Simulated scan of single mutants.
Amino acid sequence: MAAIHRPAHLTHHAAKLASAACLEKSQAIGVPMNVAIVDASLYLLHFERMPGAKLTSVDIAINKAFTAAGHRAPTSVYKENVWPGGPAFGLNNSNNGRFMYVAGGIPVVVDGEVVGAVGCSTGTPAQDTEVAQAGVDAVLEYVKQLRVKPKL
C-alpha cells in the first residue's frame, strides 16, 4: 500500500498507522487521548477516542490537526502570538473558531510537502505533542520503508 496519493495526501492506511502509534504512546505515558488525523485537504481522515479521553477534547484534537495541516506548522508555534498584544491577536478566532494554538497538532511533511497532520488532545500540551509526534514519526518511518529497495 502507498503512504500518500498524488496530489500528495496522506492515505487512510498511513493515518491508521499514525493513530496506532499515538495510541501506543498514549498508553505508555498513561494518558488517554483523542487522536485526529487529517489529510492535506484538512478534512478528517481518521479519528480515535480512547476510553477515558476528555469528551470536550474531541473537537480540540480535530481542530489541532486542521490547524497544523492548514498552516503547515505545529500548533505550538502560535501560542505567544495570539495573546492580547501579540502580533497575531485574534487569529485564534479565525476559521469559525477552529484555529488552535495549543500544542498537540503537528503536520506530516514528506519531501517538503504537507500531506496531512496529527492532532491529539486530553493531556497537557507537552503530552499531546509527545503523542502526536509518535504518530508523525510512524508515518515518516513507513514512507522511509516504502522507499528502501530490496537488495538482490
Rank of each mutant, 00 (worst) to 15 (best):
A8N: 05
L44G: 07
A20I: 15
S26P: 14
S19V: 15
K54L: 03
S26H: 02
N34T: 01
T11M: 07
I60D: 06
A40G: 14
S41P: 12
H12L: 09
A18F: 10
H13D: 06
H12Q: 12
A40T: 11
M50K: 09
F47K: 02
C22I: 14
K16N: 06
L23D: 13
A15S: 07
N34G: 10
C22P: 15
V38T: 15
G52D: 02
L23W: 02
A21M: 07
K25W: 08
K64I: 10
G52Q: 05
K16G: 10
M33V: 11
P32C: 02
N34Y: 00
V38S: 14
H13M: 09
P32Q: 02
L42D: 06
A53M: 13
A53P: 08
I60H: 05
K25I: 13
K64R: 09
E24Y: 05
H9Y: 04
H9M: 04
A14S: 11
T56A: 05
K64A: 13
G30L: 13
V38C: 14
N34V: 02
K54Y: 02
A18P: 08
S19W: 03
N34E: 02
I29S: 11
H46R: 02
E24I: 12
H12E: 10
P32A: 01
A8S: 09
V35D: 00
A53V: 13
S19P: 13
M50Q: 14
L42W: 03
A18H: 05
T11S: 09
F47N: 05
E48S: 14
K54A: 04
N34Q: 03
F47S: 09
M33R: 01
T11H: 03
I60E: 06
N63P: 14
I37S: 06
D39P: 10
G52M: 07
K54S: 12
A14Y: 06
G52S: 12
Y43E: 05
L10W: 04
A15Y: 03
P32I: 04
G52W: 08
A36Q: 03
V31T: 14
R49W: 07
L45C: 10
A28M: 10
A15I: 12
V58A: 00
A21S: 08
H46G: 10
S57L: 10
A15V: 14
A36R: 02
N63I: 13
C22M: 09
V58D: 00
V38Q: 09
V35H: 00
